[in-house]
Each structure stands twice: as C-alpha cells, then as structure tokens.
Design a protein around this nucleic acid. Structure first.
Length: 623
DNA sequence: TTAGGGTTAG
C-alpha cells in the first residue's frame, strides 16, 4: 500500500468529477444503487483510463463493500483511490479506516492510520472503537495521543473509549473529563457510562447517571435494566422494567433478555412464562431464545426448556451449552450427554463452558472413567485447556466416588491456585464421606480466601464440637466475634399465584404463619410415622450447634414446602429457591414428603438443584 | 466519515 504522506501535495490525475465522463457517471450510478459487482467493473474501466470519481462516490462504494462484507473488493477500492498520486479527502480515508475496523483487519487499519498525514477526531475515534473492549490499553493510549496532537474528543470518542476502562478509578477519571467538556448530556455517552459503571458493579453511580437524565431512550432503559439484571439484583431490574413501561416505552429484544435474566436469578418461573408469551414476536432472536432456555433450566422446568430448545431454528454454542448444563444441573445427566453427542453431530464446536457441563453431567451420573476421558482429552478433542472450573468438576466427580486421595492429588496438579469454590467442592466430598481431618483443612482454606463467609466458620466450629475439640470451638467463635461475622438467616422463596412468599428462619411475619406451623407439625408427625427421623447430627453441616430439633422444624425450606403443599395441586411442582445451601435434615424431609404426598418438589440452593420425586433426589444425596 | 443496550459457568 502506498503511503499517503508520500503522495501529499501531488495534483489530482487526468480527470475528476468536474470533468464529466460517462465512465464516472456510470460508476456513480452503480455506487448509488449499491450494485457492487457493476460498480467494480466500472471502476476497472476508470482505472484503465486514469479517471477518478468524487470523494462522496468513493465513500459510498467503500460503505457498500463494508455492508456486503466484500473484503477483497474493499482492498481494491483502497488501491484504486491511492494510485497515480491521487490525494483522497480525509473523510474518504476515514471511511476506509472504518471498513477495515468492521472487517476486523486491525493491521490494515493501523497501517492506513499511521500513514495519514493528518487525522481528525473521526480518524482517532475509529481507531479507539477498534481497540475498545479488546485492546483496552491501546484504546486509552490513543486517547492520550489524540490529546497530544491537539485533537479534542467528542461524544463519539467518549462513548467508545468508556468501554476500554480498566477499573473504577479510570472510569471516574474519564467521567470527570466528560463532565468538564459538557458532553455528559449526550444520550450515547450516558448510556455508555451506565453500562460501564454496571460492568464494574458500581450500581449507585450507574443509577446516578440514569436519574439525572432529563430524557431517556430505549437503549438507556435497557442499559440500566441490564446493569441490575447482570449484577444479580433482579428485583431492582424488574422495578425499573415497570417504570420503563409506565414511561411509555415498548420492550425490545434486549429489554426482554434482561427481564428474563432477572426472572432466572430470582427463580420466578411464572413471571418468566408471562415474558415468554411476550417474546413470541421475536421468536427468531437467538440471544433472547438462549436466555429463555436458561430461564426454564434454572427455574427447574426442563420440559419447557426442552420444548423451547427444540423449537429454535438457529442454535449456537451458547444454546447447546445452556441446555447441556441445564440438564446436568437438574439431575438429567444421561440426557445431557446424549444432547452433547447431538451437538457434536450438528457441527457446533464445544467451548470452555460446554465442557464444564459435560464434566458436571459425568460427575452426577458417577461416570468416573468417562469424566477422566473428557478431562484428559478436552484439549485434543475440543481445543480447550482445562481451567480451574474443569478441575473443580473432576474433584467433584472423584469426591462423589469417594476417591478423596485422588481429588487432593488433582488439586496439587492444578496450574492455577485452587480458589474457595474448589476448596468448597472438596469440603462437600469430605461431608459425604465423613473425612473430618480433610474437612478441617479445606474449611480453613475457605476461611483464608473468604473471611466473611459465616457458614464456613460455623461448619468448622461444629466439626470441632463433634470431635470434642472444645478449645478449637472457642477459638473459632472468638474469631467470628472479633471479625463481626454473623450467620445469614436461612431464607426461602416460593411463587404461588404470581405472588412471591418469603420465609425466613425465626420470622413470623407471614400472614398465614400460624396455619403453616400447625400443618407443618402435623406433617412432621405423619412423616415420622413412616420412618423420618429428624437429623440432629450436625457433623459437617453449617448449622448452628445450639439448634435442636425444634428449630430444625421451622427451617425456611420446611415452611416453604408446607406452604406449597397447602396452595398447589398435586400435579404442580413445588418450586423453592433458598439463599443458603439446603440442610441435611430438610433434604431427608423433602425426600420423604415427595413420596408420601405424591408431590414433586424442586429446591434450588446457591450451588445445586434438588428435584425430589418419589423419595429420591436428583443430586444423589451429594451436595 | 466516528459512538451506546441483551444469552451459557463461577
């Protein structure tokens, strides 16, 4: 490619648009019609005669190449424009620059940019948008260099460069710059600010920017709703969605995707179903459909997920991964592995997350050898290097199979340091296989990594209490007091008639609590007659040691189960979401109740899904 | 001629 700098100052060639030529007119007509094929042939003829068109026509042709994805044609236009010393206008070069960025040809864009004798704010902004979110350092460096060249950023520049922020300090600094230039009033800049504050989980500032806006458009609403949905504040996301509707906006695909995500986080199946009705008009939208199947999977309704999945005309790796993981997490390991085979047959290439779902399925189905096979050959088969989460799945798999020594050995083999999630996985295995020493070791590691997590302290203290290590019990309690750590009360949610009912341990504010407690006592008596024994053995469970059978009775999940039984027919599933992991006693209770009352119960805790049916749980009593 | 929003794990 010829350098523009070398050509600068040279006279335009033989003829230009001021010299009307049939060739140029013909070329311009084809460009206006976006008839790329004929335009390129007309350009060949012009090239042979050394004729050049005007800048606007070239710019249109480049945009046409860009829109059609015609890379080679675009490059030829580039060469034609720069041949024989023609000096193109800056906006034409900027259009070329933009074309290369769209084609993701960064090297070509950089070459062209470096060769430009002068660059305006559009040239700089185009380069910044090329780097933003991929090569953030370069994007920020560009901003500094453009300042040095005396080019002032505009609203386009800021809405691009914001995505390149590498943290909150950097973002605040940029935000100050935006305020100083008075560009904060631009709706694009504001939505970018909201988005980036949300990405860095600073929702106060995201909401601050949003609230200050005198006028908002749909994208801004979507930014703020998406921000809360992505930061696990589904309630606020849904409140904002209601506000948006009151403000007269109609939801589009992006809005509904975030609303579904909020339903997913809160396990609001009925609300999710209502949203499903509204998204039928967008039934070809891939992202929205992916969010829909995820919602059904995470709300524990695999029938709905399967039916939505099979209706999808277009499926990508996310659709398949969501469904494979969804089946596995809900206890349908065999179907998950079968679906994975269909995925490979369909030609979709598994990624990091797909393999996680597959390993999870192997783990839950007790397929140790198959799990090992996928783990050892994932790099060769799918080009995916095993990461921390894959190791976690294997540790889970070995732990379930009682092969704790192998699990520990694998933890030592990890290239990255095990995190609290990995240690918690090992702890789960210790709990099931009653390995007290290893459990103490794992719990201490978790406390080191997550010193605020009350559950682990209590669990550790209970292990010590049950092995009569009273000095250690006192020590753990002392650390908890010094650090001001209190156990989060257990809390369960259940959706009945589109209303969410919350049950918190020790809270009696539910209007029907007396009836619920009375009927729960009856139910406990009846299940005890068929062999249920309250499990007051707290070994390796994160329950308060002083809680005895009476307090076990009123665990939030038991109250929620009772409320579900009181209000839902036997054909309906009792679906509960819990903030803490289900306790061992409630797990046994739910199993017995599911058999005795012929009621399917699904409890989603922060880590696992439990489908209780006919006395059996999908987790295989391992959690 | 340049810019903003949505999906899978943890």
């Amino acid at each position: 490619m010829k350098a523009i700098s070398k050509l600068k100052g040279m006279k335009p060639p033989l003829r230009n648009v001021a010299d009307p030529s049939p060739l140029v007119n013909e070329f311009a007509n084809f460009c206006h019609q976006w008839d790329l094929h004929r335009a390129m042939r007309a350009m060949d003829a012009m090239e042979r005669h050394g004729v050049f068109a005007d800048a606007i026509t070239y710019s249109e042709l480049i945009k046409c190449c860009s829109a059609r994805g015609a890379v080679q044609e675009g490059k030829r236009v580039h060469e034609h424009i720069f041949c024989k010393g023609y000096e193109p206008k800056m906006f034409v070069v900027n259009t070329l620059l933009n074309m290369y960025v769209k084609f993701n040809l960064l090297e070509e864009a950089e070459d062209l940019f470096d060769e430009m004798p002068e660059r305006n704010v559009v040239s700089w902004t185009t380069m910044i948008s090329a780097y933003s979110n991929k090569l953030n350092d370069k994007a920020l460096k560009c901003l500094i260099l453009m300042f040095r060249e005396g080019v002032r950023p505009n609203m386009f520049t800021y809405s691009s460069v914001l995505r390149a922020c590498d943290g909150l300090p950097n973002l605040r600094q940029l935000h100050c710059g935006i305020i100083k230039t008075g560009l904060e009033s631009d709706v694009f800049v504001r939505s970018a600010l909201i988005d980036v504050y949300s990405k860095w989980s600073d929702l106060d500032n995201a909401l601050g920017v949003f609230d200050e806006m005198p006028t908002r458009d749909l994208v801004v609403w979507n930014s703020i709703i998406g921000g809360f949905a992505q930061n696990s504040d589904g309630n606020e996301a849904l409140n904002l969605f209601k506000r948006m509707k009151r403000a007269g906006f109609l939801a589009d695909q992006a809005t509904l995707t975030s609303v579904l995500r909020a339903c997913t986080g809160l396990a609001l199946l009925e609300l999710g179903r209502q949203v499903h009705v509204h998204i039928l008009k967008f039934d070809q939208d891939l992202i929205l459909n992916n969010a829909l199947i995820d919602m059904y999977c995470k709300c524990g309704s695999l029938e709905d997920a399967n039916s939505a999945f099979s209706r999808m005309v277009e499926k990508d790796v996310i659709s398949w991964s969501t469904m494979v993981a969804g089946l596995a997490q809900n206890g349908y390991s065999r179907q998950a592995l079968e679906l994975f085979e269909s995925m490979k047959e369909s030609g979709s290439r598994p990624n990091y997350i797909t393999v996680l779902g597959v390993l999870f399925a192997c783990s839950h189905a007790g397929l140790v050898e198959k799990g090992w096979y996928y783990f050892r050959s994932m790099k060769k088969l799918f080009g995916v290097d095993p990461g921390r989460e894959h190791y976690g799945c294997l540790i889970d798999l070995l732990g379930r199979a009682g092969r704790l020594d192998e699990a520990v050995k694998l933890m030592h083999e990890m290239e990255c340091e095990p995190d609290s999630v990995t240690w918690r996985t090992l702890l789960g295995a210790c709990r099931v296989h009653r390995n007290v020493d290893l459990a103490i070791y794992a719990a201490k590691k978790i406390i080191e990594l997550e010193p605020e997590d009350a559950g682990t302290y209590i669990l550790l203290s209970n292990i010590y209490a049950n092995t009569q290590r009273w000095e250690d019990v006192a020590e753990v309690r002392k650390i908890m007091t010094n650090r001001g750590i209190r156990k989060t009360p257990g809390c369960s949610w259940i959706e009945v008639d589109k209303q969410i009912h919350v049950f918190i341990l020790g809270d009696t504010s539910h209007p029907k609590i007396e009836e619920i407690v009375r009927r729960l006592n009856d139910l406990i008596e009846r299940v005890m007659r068929v062999g249920y024994v309250p499990d007051t053995n707290f070994v390796l469970q994160d329950l308060e040691g002083e809680q005895k059978e009476d307090s076990l009775r009123y665990h939030s999940e038991k109250l929620a189960i009772m409320f579900g039984l009181m209000n839902l027919s036997r054909e309906k599933t009792v679906r509960i979401r819990k903030n803490l992991r289900i306790c061992g006693d409630c797990h046994v209770f739910a199993k017995v109740v599911s058999r005795m009352e012929h009621q399917t119960i699904v409890i989603r805790d922060p880590i696992r899904y439990h489908h209780f049916q006919d006395g059996v749980c999908s987790c295989g009593d391992y959690w």
